[in-house]
Design a protein around this nucleic acid. Structure first.
Lengths: 237, 237
DNA sequence: GCAAAAGTGTTTGGTATACACCCATGC
DNA sequence: GCATGGGTGTATACCAAACACTTTTGC
């Protein structure tokens, strides 16, 4: 198991750019609740305060690669859904020095990746998005912006699947949208909308060991989505 | 009239951050054609090549303020619609040094602001978006990304008005969408859609000196939009 | 009168919504 | 049987698309 080695990388393997950092908003889903991953500062003046996991960019490193590396250092996971939000660069955002940060957000299958504290973080924890504590610097702004972006994105592009297991039921998918968008959806109508898109692939399998009628399992197939997109299809929830 | 003094500011008033730059995508509308503003390098190895106007960020300057200042140096205009696109940071994007650039896009009333070459730019010119030449570095990527963002944004938020004069006709507005989205729209249906939103304010004025029936003039009112938004209204074209 | 654009009316088909209903399974 | 969630059917209302049509103005 990989331990966290970021916030600010204690042993740089490569010289880093001093005035640019990366901060990651990592979203996970657990029992129909949307969570975000936070790290607690172990030392210094911000000791005990919560922050987004982050780090610095190597001089020879692509921006996206740096984000991916930093995220791997936190979750131990590779090949996550990871996308840039935008840069945050108010002059006084970081009190110790002039640092512009580039924020990323990631969607992960929470149950598949265990996280552990380490390095400059004394604790790493999933927080329900409704109960996020005060964060250091402008990290609360980044969180709010990222949540807004996620809510928009998830409605217009099929990215939500990154939060679910490979095979999922329609109810799981519906609960995903309900928890991210904070709305209640009509089951029959949601089913029809999804099925009419012809985007989901039927696994021809049923749930196991459930105390009610077993639901059909579906999966999201990127190549099906590509094919539909080329025919002018546009995802919309 | 202000002249261009950017691409890279020749006389820095304030120390700049060396490894971060800003590049601006400035869109304008002229006779129903969407244009973008480009600057030609006067000196150096890239002499004669076209680029997005840009500059560097002062050590004590907010990111957004820097973009606004750079844009003012190019167009002489203040209080433009200006929004961040995202950061571009591939390791090899800028051959001379490691520089991450933060791209902005702006929407301007093209006829109101004249631009002039100066500083490190030997020429500044509006280019039809369909005829944009090869650009230096990764500026073509930024252009493509920005155009895509504009096309999305203009459909979901009332930002297109920034390209039109204060008072405009419904046909002008329709042509704006047609040129940005590269589609043909049905006049009666477009009119109805716009009017049903109850977003436009009737100026109670007519066009002057036209060789046909004079159209009614409308304007966009930010406060009307705010009020509608609070009632759950969502702009959509 | 004619050209050009303003502006209105109407028909049609699709689709979002609301909600009633039946089905399968474990306890 | 009953609770729980799976899954289907249907009536309504609204809205987008297509297109025919009338109105106003300058020349």
């Amino acid at each position: 198991m990989e331990t966290i080695s970021s916030i600010y990388n204690p042993e740089p393997q490569q010289e880093k750019l001093p005035d640019i950092s990366i901060d990651c908003l990592v979203f996970g889903l657990d029992n129909g609740r949307l969570n975000v991953l936070l790290a607690k500062h172990r030392d210094g003046i911000r000791q005990g305060q919560w922050a987004l996991p982050g780090g610095h960019i190597g001089k020879l490193e692509d921006l996206d690669s740096a984000a991916s590396r930093i995220l791997q250092e936190v979750t131990g996971a590779q090949d996550l859904f990871l996308e840039q939000l935008r840069a945050f660069g108010a002059a006084g955002r970081f009190p110790d020095a002039r640092v512009i940060t580039i924020a990323y957000y990631a969607l992960v299958k929470q149950e598949e990746y265990k996280v552990a504290a380490g390095g400059p973080a004394s604790d790493v924890k999933w927080w329900d998005i409704h109960e996020v504590p005060e964060l250091v610097y402008d990290h609360s702004d980044i969180f709010n912006h990222g949540l807004k972006t996620l809510r928009h994105k998830v409605r217009h592009e099929p990215v939500g699947f990154n939060l679910l297991p490979e095979k999922f039921t329609l109810l799981q998918l519906q609960e995903l949208y309900e928890s991210i968008l904070d709305v209640k959806l009509d089951k029959p109508n949601f089913r029809r909308k999804m099925m009419n898109m012809k985007l989901l692939v039927d696994c021809n399998e049923k749930q196991q060991n459930v105390a009610h009628r077993a639901a059909a399992l579906y999966r999201f197939d990127e190549s099906v989505y590509q094919a539909l997109t080329e025919q002018g299809f546009s995802f919309e929830v």
